[in-house]
Design a protein around this nucleic acid. Structure first.
Length: 496
RNA sequence: GGCGGCAUCGCCAAGUGGUAAGGCAGAGGUCUGCAAAACCUCCACCCCCAGUUCGAAUCUGGGUGCCGCCUCCA
């Protein structure tokens, strides 16, 4: 069974073989920190988080690097507007990023390089490109001569002639640097300092790096000349990743990355979610203002294959919440019924922790999960397996609650539960029991019995409204009533 | 205009030559207000046209529609 990944470079799924057996070097082009992250960013972060988790589960030693772009016009603009500094703005949003991602259960990267911390590497790279004839200085700027790199366009499938023919009018009009460029498609590696903007000294004078060179430098700095997986949004294919290839490969003579992976965009009413369109929802608004459950957000994102567009709607989020209810019931099965089913280790601190769990590796569920994930990280297919396990456990849980017995034996159930917990963990889905759920003054059994008696009287008189009122009242206190044949009413305390 | 992608049930979404997974929502029944639970049953000829094939959602050609990139963007 081999893992296959879709490679943007070749436009097909390929068997995954890292440069060095057993080890994976992965780089994700992270965010520019000038504002809070929105659902589109969440998708990218979650998708690559899952790829990374899966590779690790598959036995690879993964080194995962994600950058922060902290030198950028948008950050500067924001700093100006706030009367603060570029450093202060980016620092603030980097912290916000970490808070958001922690809530979404996105694992931390092994390293988070920043452009401002990589200036030496950037300057070295620009210098090298200049020495090798791929770059030229112009009035304090340095540009990359796109025509000097034979492979230019290989990632995005573009030809230089086509691009100029199609876009020349617009580019020339909008590009203030056009007069300094030898060719309209050339791009800046270094920009001369402008008054009042942060700048760094360099052989070309005071200035700051262009966007594309940052990533080339950070990749090389942290992971070396050739990495295994370079990931990012598909809106970065051109020009960003194309330019990265041109810079890195011209300089090292080695392939920059063996696999290029790109996630699809989150859309709103079919249009890309973006700052410029103003149709975005930030992660914190979704979580705080709209009260979305982070795990439901993860489900919403993972129920689509990562390369396709994903439309963000309130209905889709609501549906994801319902799905999560089922999944959560399954994930909590062992906590809820372990005692009753006689699991001897329920009180151990490791109970329920996927890291300590053994699951039957050759079970049908694991096999199907693996087949889906091996097929270019097919998370919707993988989720199918989880839902089947979770649904089954949910039913058994209900049987246990309502009838006091299950269909399957405790050990089979335990095995199913553990399989679910372990596989869910690979997708970053986890539920923990509400320890000490805050519930005001739990009702005494006598009070409950009294209310049930009142309700029985009301029901006898066919006063359904009163009966329902009492049931709702109890429900609000976490007590669910179950009417059984013969006028008997049982009750259970919801575990929350 | 160039390059790329997508079109499968009310909604989301798998499936890449052998007769349509799953989630959400829905209908009927065992059940006797409503609710809860279980069990059973039902719920798609896969955008259109033509072709290849014993056989196509799956391959080929041609349409139609939608989206992304070509400017900062996950």
């Amino acid at each position: 069974m081999t893992l296959t990944l879709y490679n943007t470079l070749t436009r097909r799924k390929e068997p995954f073989e890292p440069l060095e057996a057993g080890k994976v070097k992965m780089y994700y082009c992270g965010v520019t920190v000038y504002d809070h992250c929105h659902v589109g960013h969440a998708r990218a972060c979650i998708v690559w988080d899952v790829v990374r988790r899966y590779l690790a589960w598959r036995g690879y030693e993964v080194r995962y690097v994600q950058n922060f772009t902290d030198i950028d016009d948008k950050i500067l603009n924001r700093a100006r507007a706030e009367g603060s500094s570029m450093a202060a703005v980016s620092e603030r949003f980097i912290q916000a990023y970490f808070e958001d991602m922690a809530r979404l259960n996105v694992m931390e990267a092994d390293e988070y390089p920043r452009a401002t911390h990589t200036l030496d590497g950037i300057k070295r790279l620009v210098h090298e490109l200049e020495q090798k004839g791929y770059a030229y200085p112009a009035n304090g700027d340095v540009y990359y001569a796109v025509h000097s790199f034979a492979g230019y366009g290989k990632l995005s499938g573009r030809k230089l002639e086509d691009m100029q023919a199609g876009a020349s009018g617009r580019v020339d009009a909008a590009d203030l640097d056009a007069p300094k460029k030898r060719d309209p498609s050339d791009f800046a590696l270094w920009k001369a300092a402008k008054p009042g903007e942060p700048a760094w000294e360099s052989p070309w004078g005071s200035g700051r790096p262009g966007w594309h060179i940052e990533c080339s430098a950070m990749v090389r700095d942290r992971l070396g000349d050739t990495i295994d997986i370079h990931a990012g949004g598909n809106d970065l294919i051109f020009p960003h990743h194309e330019n990265e290839i041109a810079q890195s490969e011209a300089s090292t003579g080695q392939p920059l990355s063996r696999y290029w992976m790109h996630n699809g965009m989150v859309t709103v009413n079919g249009e890309k979610m973006s700052k410029s369109l103003g149709n975005f929802t930030t992660i914190r608004d979704l979580l705080d203002r709209d009260g979305a459950n982070p795990m439901a957000v993860r489900l919403f994102i993972l129920q689509a294959t990562y390369r396709r567009p994903l439309d963000f709607t309130t209905e889709a989020i609501a549906s994801a919440h319902k799905s999560w209810d089922t999944m959560r019931d399954g994930l909590l099965f062992g906590y809820k019924h372990g005692q009753q089913l006689g699991y001897s280790d329920v009180d151990d601190s490791s109970f329920g922790n996927p890291e300590y769990m053994r699951m039957p590796e050759d079970s049908k569920a694991v096999r199907r999960f693996r087949e889906s994930m091996d097929d270019d990280i097919n998370t919707p297919g993988a989720l199918t397996v989880l839902f089947e396990l979770a649904k089954d456990l949910q039913k058994e849980s209900n049987r246990l609650t309502h009838d006091g017995k299950t269909l399957a034996d405790p050990q089979t159930l335990r095995s199913q539960w553990q399989t679910l917990v372990v596989l869910a963990q690979i997708l970053g889905l986890a539920a923990s029991p509400d320890v000490g759920a805050q519930r005001a003054a739990p009702l005494q059994e006598a009070e409950i019995a009294a209310l049930i008696q009142q309700r029985a009287v009301a029901k006898q008189a066919k006063n359904w409204a009163e009966g329902d009122r009492i049931r709702d009242q109890l429900k609000a206190k976490g007590i669910s009533l179950i009417d059984k044949p013969g006028g008997i009413t049982d009750w259970i305390r919801e575990s929350g």
